[in-house]
Amino acid sequence: MAPPGASTCSGCHGSGASASAPGSAVPALQGQEPEAITAAMQAFRTGRREATVMDRIAKGFTDEETRAIAVWVSQQH
């Protein structure tokens, strides 16, 4: 079962054409390392990484929630 908030990630970061297109600003997250996803979310949350909407989204999750989402999303097919 998906942790709270995780299922919404696939709307932009799913396996659809826009997310998996080479050079896309919106990467597919499936198969990525959970640590990389977690680090990106933390960077968005703190402002170390530029964002259009991810900074606001990342601020809505605790470190524990972010990690649970990262693990779940990385394992999706």
Rank of each mutant, 00 (worst) to 15 (best):
E50Y: 12
T62F: 00
P3A: 00
C9N: 07
S20I: 15
R67L: 06
A19F: 07
H77R: 15
W72I: 03
Q76L: 09
G47L: 13
S7V: 01
S20M: 15
G16L: 08
A39K: 11
G60C: 04
P27L: 05
I37W: 04
A2R: 11
R48K: 15
P3Y: 09
D63W: 01
A40I: 14
T66K: 02
G14R: 09
E35S: 15
F44H: 11
P34I: 04
S7A: 13
R67A: 06
S18N: 13
A21E: 09
E33T: 05
M41L: 12
Q30F: 12
P3D: 10
T8I: 04
A68R: 09
E65C: 00
T38S: 09
R56D: 09
V73M: 11
P3S: 06
M54I: 03
R48T: 10
R45I: 07
D63Y: 01
G16C: 02
S20E: 08
A51V: 05
A17G: 08
E64F: 01
V53L: 08
V71P: 01
V53D: 01
A39S: 09
P22K: 10
A51Y: 12
E50F: 15
A28M: 14
A21L: 08
T8S: 12
T62I: 00
P4E: 04
Q75I: 07
